[in-house]
Amino acid sequence: MKRRAFFLKAGLAGLVVGNQGLTSCAPGPKLYGDKNFYINKGYQAIPKLKLSKDRIIKETVGLRPFRESGPRVEKEMLNNKTIVHNYGHGGSGWSLSWGTGNQARNLVKTTDAKKVALLGCGTVGIATATLLQESGYDVTIYAKDVPPNVTSNLATGTWSPSSRVCAEEKATPEIKANWEDACRFSFRRMQMSLGLNDIIDWGDEYTVRKQKPSGSNISGGHEMFHIDGLNPEWKTLAQKDHPFKADYVRRRSNMIFNIPSYLNFHLNNFLIRGGKLVIKDIKSLEDIDALSEKVVVNCMGLGAKAIFNDEELYPISGQLSCLVPQTEINYKLATDGAYFITRKDGIYLGGSGIERSWDTTPNRQLTEKWVDVLSDLMKDMKG
């Protein structure tokens, strides 16, 4: 026992002496890693985005279904069928999908139907079908395509509930009230999906500009409406609190939708709970009239234009260019001329919006422009 105690005391003494020696000889705290890659301000590290044209792995163009008077959520009769419309969300379809889906469900509840046909398998269609199913309806989705071959797969995937939701001159109190009802319902429902297979994440979002923009829309994104206190608010940062070479920098937390897993998760849940899916290309009112269900919910997006002769509906095209995923990047950033958003399936660059364009051919020059704009921003970050 004495021998063991001796060696124990000797070991502890050697450890203390060794630590003292290391402390006295150390030049100070050492930061590991590339200082040009991590911008460290003590409490915050913002990794730089790796940007080069050879890291682009995909380019797509999606068409947003826009109506100047906002989403169409209303009921009409077609012969002996009741049609409930739910389409035309512009750039806010992902964010408002559950809210306008709930409004469409309330219209279905005014009928005596037990079986419902639903047209479309994008984010609005899947959300509406799920809500109807939760209310006890026997729902069949009819769609010519399913994820990933739907327009919803080509969206940016961020919480933007009033992005191009209507034209400014059409923003009546009634439209705003309907939007607010849908927005609040969607926001609550999105919180229920947090933690489910990482289909929704929260992350920091930055707006970086050389100069403060003029006008009321200082956040960009063509946001029409706002609800105080619903989402974390933008905070203007002092120059000492950010690494960007810019006079106007703002930050907030925001939701990001990991689109492929999100759509698959909710569609699979709908099917597991007894919902039905039929691959069918609906091309005319006669095709709708031939369905066995007496109540039909129309979530076709742009497909509704020709079938229901909606002259108000038109596309706003938006190109996205996807970079190889970068695991340490977990924020979104928008600057003059370009933005990027981080998702599980890649880092998406964007910045275009062309009204009334049906062209879905990617423009390589746009991609290269965004790479150049964001490369200049990254290069000028303080390190």
Rank of each mutant, 00 (worst) to 15 (best):
A5G: 00
L8A: 11
K9Y: 12
A10T: 13
A13C: 15
A13T: 13
L15A: 10
L15H: 01
G18W: 03
G18H: 10
N19M: 10
Q20N: 01
G21D: 01
L22W: 01
S24E: 10
S24W: 06
A26Q: 08
A26P: 00
P27D: 00
G28M: 13
G28S: 12
P29G: 00
K30D: 04
L31F: 10
D34I: 08
N36E: 03
F37W: 15
F37Y: 12
I39H: 15
I39F: 12
Y43A: 01
A45T: 11
I46Y: 14
P47S: 09
K48R: 15
K48V: 05
L49M: 05
L49D: 04
D54T: 05
R55M: 03
R55I: 10
I56Y: 02
I56V: 14
I57A: 12
E59L: 00
T60R: 05
V61N: 02
G62T: 13
G62N: 02
L63E: 10
R64F: 00
F66N: 00
F66C: 01
P71F: 14
P71S: 12
V73C: 07
E74W: 08
K75T: 14
M77L: 03
L78M: 11
L78H: 01
N79D: 15
N79T: 12
I83V: 08
V84Q: 05
H85M: 11
N86W: 02
Y87T: 10
G90M: 09
G90C: 09
G91K: 06
S92R: 03
G93T: 07
G93S: 06
W94Q: 15
W94S: 14
L96W: 01
G99W: 15
G99V: 07
T100P: 07
N102F: 02
Q103W: 03
Q103R: 05
R105D: 13
N106M: 14
V108T: 06
V108L: 02
K109L: 13
T111H: 08
D112Y: 01
D112L: 02
D112V: 00
K114C: 06
K114I: 05
K115L: 00
K115P: 04
K115C: 00
V116T: 09
V116E: 07
V116D: 06
A117T: 04
L118I: 13
L118M: 01
L119E: 12
